Amino acid sequence: MADITRINTVTEYNHLVGQETLHPLVSVIDFAKTEPFCFFRRQLGLYAIFLKESMCGNMTYGGGTYDYEEGTMVFIAPGQVYGVESPTPQKGIGQALVFHPDLVHGTALGRNLKEYTFFSYEVNEALHLSLRERAIINDCFDKISFELQHAIDAHSKTLIVSYIELLLNYCKRFYDRQFITRNPVNKDLLARFEKVVDDYFASSQAIDMGLPSVRYCADKLFISANYLGDLLKRETGKSAQEHIQLKMIEAAKEKMYIPGKSISEVAYELGFKHPQHFTRMFKKNTGLSPNEFRHMN
């Protein structure tokens, strides 16, 4: 396995791919102008957005491998490791945008970057574009490139950051479209998510581990936690954490029907170390305390 190359600046990245540095904090890469490659692994201290317009080997990202298709976008946040592997040297076709976090510090985009949760998606959750969508994304890249070709002035940062924000907002729209067009797949994923949570509460895992985390459920489904959360929010209007809490309430109600089982025992079996925490969460979700619910039923 190849060593990981760590790249912390835009200049370092440009040097690696043979690109001229026009701005110290942001760069647009044309893969047609880079050297062919077979295999590499990198960890970036940058944000990176890749638009691949042809097959160019498999991309590895985290623990997964993904066959690139035409018109595929992948988003990488600082600190993440990614790579490309191909049996023979390949010439890429497409573009990439890389920018340092310092570029957006103090801007509205910098404050809102966490809202673009697809930066934490796994590679198998990549964005697939139609021809029309691809043209829009390429136009955003072209606008940023135009500004980079222009001499840096008082307006450069504002315009470049605005175009990056526009690009990300289009990607958010296109991901919404992708969730809709994959509705049958999403329904299956939601059903499997519910089974993961139901099985968790049906076992004794909660006693040792507490409430299941979103990360735990996502790992069981082989997807990223952010992707699971975004999918649930779009399909149901509720967050993954809200779904887990509701499943916990259902399990609690079933346990409270068991004669002789105390509220403290129910709380313990659901992973609560302190019964009052369970009581607070139960009342928040049902409007009743556990004792009030039990007496009503």
Rank of each mutant, 00 (worst) to 15 (best):
N183C: 05
R182M: 12
I49H: 00
F293W: 14
A2L: 12
L159S: 10
D67E: 11
R173C: 10
G229I: 12
G287Y: 12
I263G: 01
R182P: 00
K261E: 15
V74L: 15
Y257D: 13
T279V: 11
P290C: 13
K284C: 11
G287V: 06
K253G: 05
G71P: 00
S289M: 02
D198W: 05
L166A: 11
L167K: 02
N186D: 14
I180F: 10
G106I: 07
E133Y: 02
G110W: 04
A108E: 15
G79L: 13
M296T: 06
Y200G: 01
M73A: 10
F37R: 05
S224C: 09
F293P: 00
Y121S: 08
M281C: 09
H15M: 08
Y216Q: 12
M256G: 06
I249L: 13
H128S: 09
K247G: 14
G83V: 09
D142A: 15
F37P: 00
L44Y: 05
R134H: 12
L131Q: 07
K52Y: 07
K220M: 14
D67K: 05
P78W: 02
L109K: 03
P275R: 10
D3E: 07
Y116P: 00
D219S: 09
K187W: 01
V81M: 09
L103P: 03
R6T: 14
H15C: 04
K33M: 12
D30W: 01
H128I: 08
V214P: 00
D3I: 04
D153N: 13
Y61F: 15
V81P: 00
H277N: 12
A126F: 04
K91W: 08
V10Y: 08
I164E: 08
H150F: 03
I152F: 08
S262N: 03
Y66E: 07
Q245P: 00
P275W: 14
K91F: 09
E147L: 08
N14R: 05
Q205P: 01
F141C: 01
F201P: 04
I76K: 01
R134Q: 14
V266W: 14
H274F: 13
A126I: 00
S120G: 06
A202I: 06
I76V: 15
H150I: 10
A225N: 03
K33S: 14
Y163I: 05
V98N: 13
R177S: 14
V98A: 10
E269V: 05
N112V: 03
G110V: 07
P212V: 13
G62W: 09
I4R: 05
C38P: 00
V74H: 05
P275F: 14
I7D: 10
Y216C: 06
Y61W: 11
P212T: 14
H295S: 09
F31G: 00
C56I: 01
R134N: 15
Q245G: 11
D102P: 00
F179A: 08
C217I: 09
D188H: 02
M73W: 02
P89M: 15
K284F: 15
T9L: 12
L131T: 10
G83A: 11
V28F: 03
G92C: 11
K52D: 04
P290E: 15
K187T: 08
L228S: 04
H155E: 11
C140W: 09
Y121K: 05
L127Y: 01
C140V: 06
